[in-house]
């Protein structure tokens, strides 16, 4: 294989390109972008705009997965954050007041930070398995979101708040800038400081990392906090885009889509190396897929079937046992235990 093909972005980019190509063939004006009232319109812009919350959640999830963890509660945090912001704004006298909106946004982000810290403490402090620890908030969080909204859909009539999720800056959706900013921060934190190295090190070999003097507990705590904040911001984008908060359905399945995006992006669920740009492309693939399916007129729910096969394909490719089985189909099948032991030791 050429070094070009070995690059971690090669396969995700190929898939994305193939999807876009399919769309181009199916509907030639897929790539056309029109300018209307100084805003850009077009399917590509939509993909970016609607994909923004998922990209955000997936960025946070990437770091968690890199530490060999998982965060199932992001969907609930998305709902809670949107709900608290909308509740505060809707109860304000002047819903367009900048102070109120900034305050609400800050409150939502702070709350998500606290929720992320809760997850982080359970995982790193109490030593509970990530999937179990975050399950608690996944279940309870939905209830909390509904508690905040009172089981209703809270609608806000604030054009300033709506700007976050549906406004435009320099002819592009504002949400793209939010995503870009978060991505930049994540990249800076992980690639310009040593945090990225510590995360990969802890995810790959926690014992050796501690022996080398890395504060593994702090690293783990901080990735869950970051993931919580990302989910919180995604919640703001999502609720602002539709100017309402739905405690029941906002962010439903986000945890699964985010994990999928992370895995497609090349980050292994076994921890270690992580690829933020890969994750972004993974999220874009998922969003493009959804858009494509809408476009060709298949019921959107069928996306799930496609997703199922994508998950399986990616996992099989990542599975050593599967690769070994393919590579050595002809090999004798004696000594199942040796293979078994190998499997368990690894």
């Amino acid at each position: 294989m050429s070094p070009f093909m070995k690059h971690h972005l090669f396969w995700p980019l190929c898939v994305l390109a193939a999807l876009l190509l399919f769309n181009l063939c199916y509907s030639p004006d897929f790539f056309s972008i029109t300018i209307h009232d100084g805003h850009l319109y077009g399917s590509l812009i939509d993909i970016l705009n609607f994909g923004a919350p998922l990209i955000l959640v997936a960025i946070g999830m990437t770091l968690v997965v890199a530490t060999k963890g998982i965060d199932l509660s992001v969907g609930s945090i998305v709902a809670i954050s949107g709900a608290i912001a909308c509740l505060r704004i809707s109860s304000g006298a002047d819903q367009n007041s900048m102070g109120l909106i900034l305050g609400s946004v800050l409150l939502a982000v702070l709350l998500s930070l606290v929720l992320g810290a809760w997850n982080g403490l359970l995982v790193s402090g109490a030593g509970i398995q990530p999937i179990i620890a975050t399950l608690i908030l996944m279940v309870a969080g939905r209830g909390i979101a509904q508690l905040i909204t009172g089981g209703q859909i809270i609608t806000v009539t604030s054009s300033n708040y709506a700007y976050i999720g549906s406004g435009s800056l320099a002819a592009l959706p504002f949400s793209i800038f939010v995503v870009a900013l978060v991505l930049m921060i994540a990249l800076l934190l992980t690639r310009r400081t040593a945090l990225g190295l510590f995360i990969e090190s802890v995810g790959c070999n926690p014992a050796a990392s501690s022996m080398s003097g890395i504060r593994a507990h702090w690293v783990i705590l901080s990735v869950y906090v970051f993931c919580g904040v990302c989910a919180g911001i995604a919640g703001l984008l999502l609720s602002s885009n539709v100017s309402s908060a739905d405690g029941n359905n906002a962010g439903l399945w986000y945890e699964l889509d985010a994990i999928l995006a992370v895995v497609i992006g090349g980050t292994s669920l076994n921890g270690g190396r992580f690829y933020l740009t890969g994750t972004v492309i993974g999220a874009l693939i998922i969003q493009t897929l959804t858009t494509t399916i809408y476009m060709i007129g298949v019921p959107p729910e069928i996306t799930l079937v496609v997703k199922a096969f994508v998950v399986l394909a990616v996992c099989l490719i990542q599975s050593d046992a599967f690769r070994a089985a393919i590579a050595a189909r002809w090999k004798s099948r004696h000594y199942p235990a040796e293979k078994e032991m190998g499997r368990h030791v690894s």
Binding site: L197, F198, E200, S201, A208, S209, M211, S212, R273
Partner: peptide, 19 residues
């Protein structure tokens, strides 16, 4: 307790100093 297998030689070398 020693090597971080999936990291490069360079990263493994500077790990303790960086920590």
């Amino acid at each position: 307790e020693g090597i971080i297998g999936d990291l490069t030689v360079r990263e493994n070398i500077i790990l303790a100093l960086q920590a």
